[in-house]
Simulated scan of single mutants.
Amino acid sequence: MSEGGGATAGARGRGARVSMADVARLAGVSSQTVSRVSNGSPSVDPRTRARVLAAMRELGYRPNSAARALKRGEFRTLGVIVFTLHTTGSVRTLEAIAASAAEEGYAITLIPVSAQTQDEVLGAFTRLGELAVDAVIVVMEVHLVDDAVVRLPPGLPVVVADSEADEHYTAVDTDQAGGSRAAVLHLLELGHRTVWHLAGPQRSIAAERRARAWRAALRERGLPVPAPLHGDWSAESGYRLGLELAADPACTAVFAANDQMALGLLRALHVSGRSVPGDVSVVGFDDIPEAASFLPPLTTIRQDFAEVGRRLVAGALHRLRGGAAPRGAAVVPTGLVVRESTAPPRR
């Protein structure tokens, strides 16, 4: 073994690339055995595997993953297009996709898109078509995938985090409408006569769904629908718009479209001298880890981001393996988490 290693080390020292045959000679096994170890085959004896891995480390050998991918016909990589890295939903969904992909033995290639112009979106899709990916996951924030000028690369399975995506795509989403409805009903059942809405950006898919469900829940009961105030998902926008809500003595209940804006709203109500939940009840959306530590702890709608990520990856692999796109979106349930920021209104 040392004799073979010396010859290989000498060849490597002269600039030759370490080959699978070099590893096989040093480990005293066949090239086929080295190949099986490189591919993670469970059929290799543990002692032999350890010897081969030791030889790989000694020689600095790295398996040629591109060559293996071509041989297998797949790259074991999922492309992920994400339209923002500034919102809790997108970041936590991306984290869940990466974790689920790793569990399945896949890596991810991330392409962030600011989505300010069609050229940027088209450029991202073009780059994706040139990369070594097996399938595509699109984490949506605005309506772009179904625009006439935007088309994903042909021949790639596509999964979209958008429950109203084109029927040609596999779609996964959280129950935006159900969660928003639960938030509104919770406040109404406490006795509030209507619910104000601190909404997200007007072009946002999630903000649109939540505002639509809020409005519908009020209209079903014949209750007045206050004009929504649109923030940008940030605590700063929640604070700025919260000052407007705090100035309206009729406002006793607010549904904020995410927890960060709810945080800014809580501060605005505090500096305006309006207590929560004594004067105003507040419900958020997301159930970020910090929500239970707000002052007061925030009642909110919990999203299961881990399950969304798992289903997106599962959908991509299902399409990759020849499965048909299911009819309709896979909708992950949301749930109301009641804490101390909501209470019946003062009489």
Rank of each mutant, 00 (worst) to 15 (best):
R210G: 06
L94V: 08
W233I: 03
A124S: 12
V172E: 03
F83C: 08
P326L: 10
R339P: 13
I205E: 00
A217G: 07
A325P: 02
D162A: 02
A324G: 08
L144W: 13
I205W: 00
S204Y: 09
R17G: 06
H192N: 07
P289H: 12
S19W: 03
P344M: 06
G323S: 07
T109L: 15
M261E: 07
F125M: 09
R193D: 15
C251T: 08
G155R: 14
L198A: 13
V82S: 00
P249K: 11
A21W: 11
A96E: 03
G335V: 07
K71I: 02
D279C: 07
R14I: 13
R49A: 13
V37H: 06
Y239I: 00
V37T: 05
L243K: 14
A124N: 11
W214R: 00
F255E: 09
L269S: 03
H230A: 08
L295R: 14
R215C: 14
A329G: 10
L122S: 11
R219M: 09
V282C: 14
A9I: 09
E340Q: 10
K71R: 15
A292Q: 11
A292H: 12
V138G: 03
R267E: 06
M261W: 00
A11I: 07
A115V: 12
T252S: 14
R209H: 15
P333G: 02
L53M: 10
D232I: 10
V337E: 04
G238Q: 06
E3G: 09
V158K: 05
G238M: 06
G284A: 06
L218V: 13
A216G: 06
A329E: 05
I205V: 15
N64K: 09
G191C: 11
V142T: 13
Y239T: 01
G155W: 15
P201H: 00
A69G: 15
S35R: 09
L128F: 08
G200H: 05
V133E: 06
M1F: 09
F75R: 00
S275R: 14
I108S: 03
G322F: 01
A268D: 05
F285Y: 14
S237D: 02
